[in-house]
Amino acid sequence: MRVERLSRDKIRFFLSLDDLMDRGIEKEDMWRDIPKVHELFNDMMDQAYQELGFEISGPVAVEVFALPAQGMVVVVTRGRTPSPSDLDELDGDEMYELEVTLEESDQVIFQFNDFEDLVQAAKSLSALIREGGRVYAYRGQYFLVLDTEMELKTLQQGIAVLSEYGEASTITEHVLEEYGKTIWEKDGISGILHYFS
């Protein structure tokens, strides 16, 4: 489980499928109000406090984005800080209230430390997926964005191949478009194969 600060009142967690499995939680459980999910959220908030000094009380918005075959991204945004009189009225169990929204991502985004890793990933991926993909450079790394409109088996095999060369990214394509540099805005895989094979 990784956590990063997005702003003063917003943090983002990346939960891998292994993080969920270790706690006996299925992806579908995140949609349910069960003790295991509450325990996971409390563990996340403990980690956020220890690593970032991020404390919550009062209203909290939680956005959960399911990433195909990778895990989940959880964005936590804290609302207003309650006044001391508000705190007097709360029990210990009611220190925060949650507003949860859930979304399924239709993209897989992988990041690579250098361009050569991306080239090798594209070459290995070409047996499964020869077309599609968008490529960005951002903060000294390279990103491959794939839409998930393909057979699940092909998608899972593609993710396994990409994992050998890079790692799943929690950065959204909107951030890459806005702040990164677009290298291939379409057919990135075939572009890489054309120029670097």
Rank of each mutant, 00 (worst) to 15 (best):
L40M: 10
Q107W: 02
T101V: 13
Q50R: 12
V73T: 05
N42T: 09
D93G: 14
R80L: 07
P35Q: 06
H38M: 05
G58E: 05
L102D: 03
I34V: 15
H38P: 01
F110H: 07
E94S: 15
V75D: 08
A66D: 02
H38Y: 01
F41I: 13
V75C: 02
S85H: 13
E39T: 14
D88I: 14
D106V: 10
L87H: 10
M95S: 09
L98D: 10
I109Q: 13
V108Y: 00
E55Y: 05
G92I: 14
G71K: 01
G58V: 09
D86T: 15
M45G: 04
M44S: 02
V100F: 04
L67H: 05
G92M: 11
F110R: 09
V108P: 00
M44I: 00
I109M: 01
D106A: 14
R78D: 01
L102W: 06
V64D: 07
H38I: 00
D46H: 03
P59A: 03
Q111A: 08
F41D: 12
L102P: 00
E99S: 14
Q50L: 07
F54M: 04
P68E: 07
T101L: 10
V62K: 08
V100T: 15
E94L: 12
Y49C: 03
A48H: 08
D93Q: 15
I56E: 05
T101D: 12
G58W: 06
E51Y: 12
Q70I: 13
S83P: 04
L67E: 05
Q70W: 00
F112N: 08
F54R: 02
V73G: 08
T81F: 06
V74T: 07
